[in-house]
Amino acid sequence: MLDTHAETVPDRRPAIVICAYDVSESGWNPVDGSSGLPWDPVGGRTIPVAAADPQTLASTLTARLMEPGCRALLLVGRTRHGDAFRIQMRAENRALDGTARLDLTGPCSARATAPVAEIVEAMNEAGLTAQASSDYEDDAGNYLLYRILSDLPDGADSPAVSLIRAPATVSDAELQRGVQTAAATMARHLSPLPRSTQT
């Protein structure tokens, strides 16, 4: 006899959207190689979003964060500086080409809402060299981070948003481990969804 109860019970784990925003990025694979299913951290579930042009992607990711049950976003990109993973702590108000402000009336910068210090600590403990950075890079990652953070509603329930940058020198396996470590750390800070939340 089939267990239909398990199929009808809603998934109350909070969701983390993970997006490698560069269309040429092949290092992050949202599928768990051993099971063929999407990789999920303990206490959370992941929603992979494919790369697209930055303007479209910003709207897509913002809409995802507004969905019931979605509590976090991890952007995945590359850094041009050094051989360590960089967790970007803030985004600058810069247009995609870096020549002007993105929002003429918006603040000069927006702070990431994810637990940056804990992510860095967890990655270093996992054997991955990582550091927090206040420096931004003129690319789609900074554009997306600023757009998404500036669109978040004010309040204690704002989702956790972070940008992890991997050095060009890391292998695909190291990138995979870095993203999973960062997402797992974020998941530990998310509370289960209330029973009334539909997923």
Rank of each mutant, 00 (worst) to 15 (best):
A63E: 04
R45E: 04
P167Q: 06
A110N: 11
L152E: 12
A156C: 02
A140P: 01
L102I: 03
I47P: 15
L163Y: 02
D97C: 09
M89A: 12
Q55N: 07
D157Y: 02
G178A: 04
L2G: 07
L2K: 13
A58K: 06
L73D: 10
Y21E: 09
L73P: 14
I47F: 10
E125Q: 12
P167L: 04
G178T: 05
T129A: 11
P10K: 07
G77C: 13
T60N: 03
L96E: 11
V170T: 15
A91V: 12
P68Y: 06
S59D: 10
A122H: 07
G98S: 11
A52T: 10
G44Q: 06
R90P: 04
S59A: 14
D139E: 09
E125C: 05
A72H: 13
A15P: 03
D40M: 12
P54T: 15
D151I: 03
R80T: 14
R101W: 00
D97K: 10
V161N: 14
T199R: 15
A15L: 04
S59I: 07
P192F: 01
R111W: 09
W39F: 13
E121I: 07
Y146K: 11
V120G: 07
S191C: 00
L2R: 14
T99Y: 02
L96Q: 10
S191E: 07
D154R: 08
A184L: 04
L74H: 07
L163F: 04
V17P: 03
T62L: 03
A182I: 05
T185H: 12
M1I: 10
